[in-house]
Design a protein around this nucleic acid. Structure first.
Lengths: 115, 115
DNA sequence: AACGGATGCCTTGACATCCTAGGCATACCC
DNA sequence: GGGTATGCCTAGGATGTCAAGGCATCCGTT
């Protein structure tokens, strides 16, 4: 992912970022930069997440006690901040997922309305 | 719908408001206040839309040429601003719906990931 | 006739979220 | 040594939504 990001309309539904991050971190402890790649990879490039959105979000989630961070030396000798899910984070993920499904269904109802 | 709205966490996914409004207006010409009730009714109260969100959105949509407005006398003698969809609005609705489905699928992919 | 509630429109101000656009440092490969 | 990828971060601004009001009309009840 080179520095000169080409233009592309940024696609992300507001309100879903926290949930996506929590979900990816729940898979296994992971550092910030890798979260970007992971979300893109899993979504097959349909979701484009920016660093300028990611890092503030991570800070926010850590502050709320949903993520725990720890500096770790990667293979290759570089340092990275490894995030993992807390029990509270796990509950939060479940709650957000449930809310998402509920809203999703509701919107589908409206979109399917014929009268 | 009395004036003293009781507290309830407002539930709406940012970015979907325009689409929902366009969709409801597409069903038939309709005035603002009725859009509120319609969306709540169809979504079975899962979606709570506020007047403070609705009217600025209507203004926005009209300004972009997706809605047409006209003052009409209702039965009962009161006036109301009747909105209807323009051809451009119809195209916009289709585009937003497609985008919504795409994002929805992508998010589902991430939420379903096990590795 | 007076009042409250429902209908119908609107505005202002605050706030959260996200993006744009940068900056900095290290590791690796040619 | 230079370029690319990796890895972290911040400041500023745009946007969308909400909360909280205001105003006027109509209707039913008292």
């Amino acid at each position: 992912m080179p520095r000169h990001d080409e233009k592309r309309e940024a696609e992300l539904l507001q309100g879903t970022l926290d949930m996506l991050i929590l979900k990816v971190v729940a898979l296994r402890p992971i550092h910030g930069y890798a979260i970007l790649q992971r979300i893109q990879q899993i979504s097959q490039d349909a979701l484009q997440l920016r660093q300028g959105s990611l890092y503030p979000a991570l800070y926010r989630l850590e502050n709320k006690g949903w993520l725990d961070a720890e500096w770790r030396v990667q293979e290759g000798g570089r340092e990275a901040k490894l995030y993992k899910l807390t029990p509270a984070g796990k509950r939060q993920l479940a709650a957000e997922t449930a809310g998402w499904k509920r809203l999703c269904d509701a919107i589908s109802l409206v979109l399917a309305a014929t009268d």
